[in-house]
Amino acid sequence: MDFLTLLQILDSTLRLATPLLLACLAGMFSERAGIFDIGLEGKMLAAAFVSGAVAAVTVNVWLGLLAGIGASLLLAGIHGLASITFRGNQLISGVAINSLAAGLTVLIGQNWFGLGGRTPSLVGDGRFPPLTLPFSEALAPVPVIGPIYHDLISGHTFLVYGAMALVPASWWLLSRTRFGLRLRAVGENPAAVDTAGVSVVRMRFAAVAICGVLCGLAGAYLATGLSAGFVKDMTAGRGFIALAALIFAKWRPVQAMGACLLFGLLEAIANRYQNIDLGGVIIPVQFMQALPYILTVVILAGFVGKAVPPRAGGEPYVKER
């Protein structure tokens, strides 16, 4: 494999890891606050559709982004209502949200555009433009560093850099602020937080709302950054890969970035090569596609470093009377 191919693969790794990372961080905020969320996929899908549709109609990607976040927040609100207010089963609520998004996006898409669930292709201001970082042209001729800076690091959309910046920001928010401490406490021992006079319900709703915003960004990136428009079922299991990455990262932001980059790399390799020949042993493409899930099961099994979820995860909080 030559240097240029390697750069191209790493470049597409960055692009493919971005929606995973945003969704993974979304899941992290929710689950660290004790609200399991298997509805990441549905929220991303809804956001992708709405942002694609609004960006196509208004030819303004920022309006599309806002609308996408709104759609994702709406579903997050339903999840919050079901799992916090009415103390329902969080997993069942997640399943419902995934189905709701899968059905509604096609139903509404077909009704609005009549393209079999697609939205019209985005052109011009309907998409996020690639940003050229300073000096990238000037540095381009420099060997090794030049191509790395020019081809790999520069030239992505705002959301790619945004997602990367969110990693240290999330770390700081979770582990260095009062809000973060309370959020984590609500996921480990809500009764203690309640005793301290902090509203468990409000903290959990805040976490679910953050999750909604981040899933909105992830979905909007899919429709307006990675591709030019929405297609039916375009999330294609990314919400679940993000969930896998979250477990892989043991619910920590920096590790989440590592896990998402790894899963992005696997996807990039699977996209580029049909079958990989490793010295006589041929690895089929299907194995590469299944690898994130297999790795997650292995991690969950606890053979390679045990992943322990937040202690109060999945349990509705009932105040003692």
């Binding site: 009415f86 329902g88 089963n89 609520s93 399943v95 419902a96 899968a102 509604l104």
Partner: peptide, 19 residues
């Protein structure tokens, strides 16, 4: 896909929003 929506609503109301 209408049935997917109906299915989602049934899961939502009989499952998650049961209370």
């Amino acid at each position: 896909e209408l049935i997917v929506v109906v299915q989602a609503l049934v899961i939502l109301f009989t499952g998650a929003l049961d209370n």
